[in-house]
Each structure stands twice: as structure tokens, then as C-alpha cells.
Design a protein around this nucleic acid. Structure first.
Lengths: 149, 149
DNA sequence: TTGTAATAAATGTATATACATTAAATACAT
DNA sequence: ATGTATTTAATGTATATACATTTATTACAA
């Protein structure tokens, strides 16, 4: 449905303002779905994302600031998300020997197991929830990469 | 820049999973910019959005639940956002005569003035921050409308 | 070597999201 | 007319975002 109808608003003044609203609205649509998907596993979307980052390094550790760099939301707070995941025993924290300011984070077996349980479900969700053809989704990816400049 | 490079991650398993991450990441890029833009006016992005909804009805009032329907984030909490705007004297709240469960919200002169001060700046921001041609931004809007199914 | 700057992580505070629950008012069936 | 269900807004709680500040450690220049 056209975004103007979904949020019952008058036509936009220009296509850029429309795109801004359209992107924010679509994000909300996606995050709402993701939240429901992850909920049975006791994870929020951002916690899931941090786990994926850690799995990408496994079995190597990664510091808190490197996690922050790779997070989808640059203004988020890796430190507190890691703490939440530690409480769920999905990550380990260890002081870094070479630089004691840093903290090495590693995903645990429980974390890896949770991710693998979610894997197929997530892929199916992504495909089903994004109502675009293969060609269209490629187009969208290209436009988004360009958008950010 | 390609999303894989920005968040330093391995190639995605499929284009849909990439699009999911790409959309979330782009949203964060946009909201970060918007936050900075609105900050001098003491508004958050969602507060700005609620003000725009109210201006769309002005001089008629609109109920809290109608605001919720038109918000970008359906899971948000119109009641609390309205309370914040009332504290800034940008909206008025009045019990609805026909149905005393409902509350009629109207934008104030101060709210309208704030929006008009922001208007040109917002349009410029949207255009400058989205690095796409007119044609590309139309394409993006069409893809997003279709994506949500 | 000593002082200053820079960096890493944690913490504090305000705002917002996600979702459940409550309280008041209204709708509606019996 | 009365009781039950529904609707509207507000509130409670956990999580996350945005941004400033603090603490500890390291880097580096005078």
C-alpha cells in the first residue's frame, strides 16, 4: 500500500521527504516482525545482531568497541548489550592481556546454539516478510548503498 | 559504500537477509541525522512526527488513538509523546464531549511556529542526506511500498 | 620521567519502543 | 435495565537509543 494511505496523510511535498518517511515506516514494519520472531528465544533484535557479529569472529574474541563499530546502530551501547547477553550466558567477557582497557568478548556454545536454532527461521522470515522479487531486492540493496553516500 | 564493508561483515547468504540489514542500517543513518537536526528545537524525531500529524488536521483536533494510527511506529506510545509536547506547550489536550474516553489534541500556535521554522531546513536535510537522483528516489519509494506487501 | 592527550569501557540521564495491564467510559445483547 | 464486552487512554516494566560524563589505562611529547 502507498505510504500516504497507510499513515493517512496528504501527498508529500517532494519525493525525498516521502522517502524519509517511507524508510522510517518500513523500518518499523521490519523491527516489529523481528521482535516477534526473536521473542521466544529471549532476544531483542539488537541482541541478535550482536550475537551474529560475535559468531562472525568465533572462535576469536572481539573487543567491545569493535562490536560497536559493526553494529547496525552506531549510537547504541555495545557495553550494555553485552552485559545483557552475559546474563543469558550467551557470551563471555575477559580482560584483554595486551591492553587492559579493552575487554575481549566471545560467543559461548549456548549463544552459538541459539543462533543455529534461529537460522532457518530467520532466513524464511526475511524472505517472506520482504514482498519483493529477487531482482527487486537487488535493486533495493543498490539504492540503499547509494543513498548513504 | 556497500553494507558489507560498512559493518565489516562477510557476504550475506541471500539478498533478502542483506536487504533486512541494509534497511535497519539505513534507518539508523537517517534517524541519527534527524536527531541532530531537531535537537536545537528540543524535539525528538517522533515528537516532530506527531506535530506534523497534528498540523495536518489543524484547526481540527484529533484523538490520541488517531495519532497512534498515523504514527510511523505503530508500537509507540502516542499518549506519552503527547504529554511531552504538552509540557513544551506545543499541543493542547481537551476531553472529548461526545465520548469522554477520548481526548482531543490540537496543535498550538507555538507548535505551528516551531514547525514552520523547521520546514525549509527539513526539506533541505531530506534532499541532501538522501544521495539519490529524482528518478532513483521514486524507484526507492515504489520498492518500499511494494516491500510491505 | 612526568604531565597531557587519547582511548576503551562503563555509567548516568532523558527519550523512545515493545508489550502487558489497568481504569474509565461506552456499546450492546439479553 | 443490567451485566458483559469493547474501546480509549494512561500507566508499568524491560529494553534500546542518544549523548554526556567518568574511570582506568595507554600513548606520547616536552
Amino acid at each position: 500500500m502507498k505510504i500516504e494511505d497507510e499513515i493517512k496523510q496528504k501527498p508529500f511535498k517532494d519525493a525525498y521527504s516521502k522517502a524519509m518517511v517511507n524508510l522510517l515506516y518500513t523500518n518499523s514494519y521490519l523491527v516489529t516482525g523481528q521482535s516477534r520472531l526473536f521473542k521466544p528465544f529471549g532476544l531483542s533484535p539488537e541482541q541478535y545482531n550482536v550475537l551474529r557479529i560475535l559468531r562472525g569472529q568465533h572462535p576469536d574474541p572481539i573487543t567491545v568497541s569493535s562490536i560497536q563499530d559493526r553494529m547496525l546502530n552506531k549510537m547504541s551501547n555495545a557495553s550494555r548489550l553485552v552485559e545483557k547477553l552475559k546474563q543469558k550466558e550467551m557470551v563471555q567477557r575477559k580482560e584483554c592481556a595486551e591492553d587492559r582497557r579493552q575487554v575481549d568478548i566471545t560467543i559461548t556454545a549456548k549463544g552459538l546454539d541459539t543462533l543455529s536454532q534461529l537460522e532457518n527461521e530467520v532466513r524464511k522470515f526475511n524472505k517472506d516478510y520482504i514482498h519483493l522479487s529477487e531482482e527487486e531486492v537487488d535493486q533495493l540493496n543498490n539504492l540503499l548503498d547509494k543513498l548513504r553516500g
